[in-house]
Simulated scan of single mutants.
Amino acid sequence: MGEGAEEAGWDVEPGDEIEPVVQAVGRLLKICREAAGMTVSELSEAMGYGEDMIRKIERGARIPRPEFLDRADQLLKAQGHLRAFMEDMRKARYPKKVRQLAEMEERAVEMLLYSNHNIHGLLQTEEYARAMYAMRQPALPEDVVERETAARMARKAVFDREPAPTLSFVQEQVTLERPFGGKTVLRRQLEYLLVVSKLRNVTLQVMPTDREEHAGAAGMIEVLKFADGTAIGRSDGAFNARPVSNPKDLRILELRYGIIRAQALTPRESQAFIERALGRL
């Protein structure tokens, strides 16, 4: 059997601006299916998906996976018309708020990222990310956990960009010690941090718990800078946690982040700290 109905895609979020595109893809799928002389039942059997799922995709109520479109294009001899929407559906699969964040990260030439409760999303392993979503309260449905995890992993494409963006991370010591998902998950997460910390475009620093002064006590900070000289930033402890883009507000966030970096361990000291933390697991 194929991937199965539960894995064929995700429902469209009401009011999402991507909804018209998903509906257009659904109509195109139906046209291609009928042109090929196939019933929904026949396409379902050939593709390995449930009939209800095929109907939901054709109605535009379900976002198909890119690989679904690729396979359907071959099967229905659609001459690339379905494949043409693969990238759109890849982006549409993710929640709107995540999609918007990923688009900004894709444009950023520099990122300043301070995290105080958990490992930053761009640094998380798949196991760690899934554990983070699985512990949410009220509990998230399993399909939502998988969708959010997949979206977070897709954002890691930022590490493969050319030219590579400059990435600066500062992590609180406690984020390297909380065993979200268990000690094995934490061990693999720390091992991954060591790998990422050695990338030429990445600076990873640890903020020790024993610091008597800490410019980041008010909470997380994120600043994304773009090639045109503009930027956007956000912090739990400033501007009511709303995103800001005016130079005056951004200077405040950059000032705080600069002091945090100065107060944290150096990159080399941070690597040694992570290695010691691994040794204790």
Score class of each variant (00 low, 15 high):
P14R: 11
P14A: 14
P14W: 10
G15L: 11
D16S: 13
D16N: 02
D16E: 09
E17W: 11
E17K: 11
E17N: 03
E17L: 11
E17P: 15
I18M: 14
E19T: 14
E19W: 07
P20W: 08
P20T: 12
P20N: 10
V22P: 00
V22L: 06
Q23N: 00
Q23W: 04
A24T: 11
A24R: 13
G26W: 01
R27A: 14
R27H: 07
L28M: 13
L28A: 11
L29R: 06
L29N: 03
I31S: 05
I31Y: 01
C32T: 06
C32F: 01
C32W: 00
R33P: 02
R33G: 05
R33T: 05
E34C: 05
E34H: 06
A35D: 13
A36T: 01
A36D: 02
G37V: 06
G37F: 08
G37L: 05
M38L: 15
M38D: 04
T39K: 08
S41W: 04
S41K: 14
S41Q: 13
E42I: 02
E42T: 12
L43E: 03
L43I: 11
L43K: 02
S44V: 06
E45L: 13
E45W: 08
M47F: 05
M47H: 06
M47P: 01
G48C: 08
G48T: 10
G48D: 05
Y49L: 15
G50I: 08
G50C: 07
G50M: 08
E51M: 10
E51V: 06
E51W: 00
D52C: 06
M53T: 15
M53R: 14
I54R: 04
I54K: 03
I54A: 05
R55F: 07
R55P: 00
I57N: 01
I57Q: 04
I57M: 15
E58S: 08
E58Q: 12
G60R: 09
G60Y: 09
R62D: 01
I63E: 02
P64L: 08
P64G: 10
P66G: 05
P66R: 09
E67A: 14
F68H: 11
F68D: 03
F68I: 13
F68A: 07
F68E: 05
L69C: 09
L69P: 03
L69K: 05
D70A: 15
D70Y: 09
D70I: 11
D70L: 12
R71W: 04
R71I: 06
